[in-house]
Amino acid sequence: MRFSGAEDRWRQGLGTLRDVVRQTLVTRQLAEHLPATPCRILDVGSGQGTQALRMAARGHHVTALDASGDLLGLLETGIQPGMRVRTVRAEAERLGELFEPGGFDAVLCHGVLMYFDDPDPFLADLARMLAPGGLLSLLVRNGDALAMRPGLLGDWEGALRAFGGTDYVNRLGVPARADRLGELAGRLAVHGLEVRQWYGVRVFSDTFPDDAPIPENLDDLLAAEERAGRTDPYRGVSALIHLICSAS
């Protein structure tokens, strides 16, 4: 996986306005599909654990896997009494050897698939982790709107390149790969996963500068982003897409 070497820049982005928008929307969208009763959740590439901790606070049993000991350390500082969270330090590629098939009711994989040149073996591993009827929450870069960010920033050469492919260099300076919704749905179907719902994430706020302050009207911003992320045609031009998939 190609994320190695970008951890410092990732940490610098924690708590920024773009991060707040992303994490809040993903939490709200995911919560609609998880059962109210406690379930077993695996968070693959959990990073600092924003989603893992939020799911644990809702009573779920969470296993958080990440290759970074420092990021897992941040996660562990957020574990409150009564939360059931286990951390595992390992590369995402090792899923198949670390966990028994069918051991989780839900698997979260947010911002990870983009670092795999060939996503299919990894998608197969994610599918194998799910119990029958389990749920996969997958957050990826939106390949159908890859030209939007450079275009809105006035990078016309970058926008023109983006029309023709799915490879790009992200804000962390790491080469990455976007996914087009139709193609990704087909890949998921091969592994017994059906897209139940999908959302756009960061329709309006993707081009905010790194140092953009948290506005006083944050609730209005989030409400507008949430509405756009559920509504066509807006969700189709979002920076990220969040897929909720069910296992057969």
Rank of each mutant, 00 (worst) to 15 (best):
R187H: 12
R2E: 08
G45T: 11
G59T: 13
L123K: 05
I214D: 04
G96F: 07
L153R: 15
D155G: 12
T37I: 05
Q80F: 00
L160P: 00
G134H: 06
T24S: 10
I241F: 03
R9L: 15
E194G: 07
N142E: 02
D179W: 11
H242D: 05
C39N: 01
G143T: 06
V88Y: 09
E32F: 10
R18F: 05
A64D: 03
V85M: 08
A147I: 00
L130K: 07
Q23V: 04
G134V: 08
P132T: 08
A52W: 10
P35V: 14
L130C: 07
F99W: 04
R54T: 04
Q80P: 00
G182S: 07
F163W: 11
E225L: 10
G154M: 13
A239N: 03
R11E: 11
F99H: 03
P215V: 08
G133T: 06
Y168Q: 01
T24L: 01
D219V: 09
E183A: 14
Q80A: 15
R54D: 03
R86N: 11
L193H: 05
P209Y: 09
L135C: 09
R149K: 14
G229W: 05
R2A: 10
L243Q: 06
H61C: 08
S46L: 01
D118W: 00
D8Q: 13
